[in-house]
């Protein structure tokens, strides 16, 4: 029960134990992944054979190849980054326009449109993937039959991966940006306009700075979601797999500790991103 009511000792102990067990459940897989990135053995399995950094830095073409020398792996990380940047740019831009549209304009079918914008979140990622794949192929086929055009980006590959991920990340961007915009005090803009500022200047000097924290937050979230996406990507990927798809393939074949090393690398990157977000936190609160 709540602290203001008497809680029997057994309940307090049980609560504490449950929280501890729960945290163990949450962190055990991550700890295990990290530990075996440093084990001096060819398989990520016990027993412990001693500490090594080989799975990061080794460069022995005949033997161990650390993640930083595994070209296929490094290339897939680069691919994920490229896809992530495109998805982020598209999602933030479209999310911002949608937020402005829904918060500031009335039009017929507005309710329908705002509900339709939520729909991508409830469609399983696999289905988003196959539907976009089928539609793109249909268009490609049509262009080929009628105009003899061969449109490469409509075939499975990174452009389709970007569009597939964007199709649902745009919803999340719209939701967060709209939430921030709805708390904006319109009189600030009216004041700027009354004082002779142009619409563009008002947008740049009043609205954009106000939205900045939400824009940065949305961008980070979009990038992270894109980087982690698997379901949609799997259906649309061509011969150039992003990291999640490559890792999945290798895990099917039987993992080596290189994957643990990549995981540690990803965790470190996520931690840095999280710290950056948290440091931004207080300023956001005072804004």
């Amino acid at each position: 029960m709540i602290p203001s009511l008497p809680r029997p000792a057994w309940l307090r102990v049980a609560t504490a134990l449950y929280v501890a067990a729960f945290l163990g459940f949450l962190f055990l897989p991550l700890i295990v992944v990290s530990v075996f990135a440093f084990n001096d053995a060819p398989y990520p399995a016990p027993p412990w054979h001693g500490f090594t950094l080989d799975w990061f830095f080794a460069n022995d073409p005949a033997g161990r190849l650390g993640m930083f020398h595994d070209d296929e792996l490094m290339h897939s990380i680069w691919t994920s980054c490229k896809v992530g940047v495109w998805v982020t740019l598209l999602a933030v831009l479209v999310g911002l326009v949608n937020a402005l549209l829904l918060e500031r304009h009335e039009f017929r079918g507005k309710k329908l449109l705002s509900i339709l914008m939520l729909v991508p979140l409830v469609i399983p990622g696999v289905i988003l993937g196959i539907s976009i794949l089928a539609f793109a192929s249909q268009i490609a086929q049509f262009l080929n039959d009628h105009f003899h055009w061969y449109v490469r980006f409509l075939r499975p590959g990174l452009p389709l991966v970007v569009l597939g991920q964007f199709s649902y990340i745009a919803t999340i961007a719209t939701l967060t940006l709209r939430a921030r915009l709805s708390r904006f005090d319109r009189t600030l803009e009216d004041a700027a306009l009354n004082l002779g500022a142009s619409r563009a200047a008002t947008f740049r000097t009043i609205l954009l700075p106000y939205l900045r924290p939400a824009l940065v937050g949305t961008a980070m979230m979009s990038f992270l979601l894109s980087f982690a996406d698997f379901n949609t990507t799997l259906m649309l990927v061509g011969g150039n797999p992003p990291l999640t798809v490559l890792m999945y393939g290798r895990m099917h074949e039987g993992a080596t500790p290189v994957l643990n090393a990549v995981s540690v690398f990803l965790m470190a990157a996520s931690a840095l991103l999280a710290i950056a977000l948290l440091r931004r936190g207080p300023r956001r609160a005072s804004a």
Binding site: A228, M251, A255, N260, L266, L273
Partner: peptide
């Protein structure tokens, strides 16, 4: 603490369970 695992992709978490 509840959020941290979800900053990391599902592939990594699943790798942990497999190990």
């Amino acid at each position: 603490a509840c959020m941290i695992p979800f900053w990391i992709s599902e592939t990594v978490r699943t790798l942990g369970w497999m190990i």
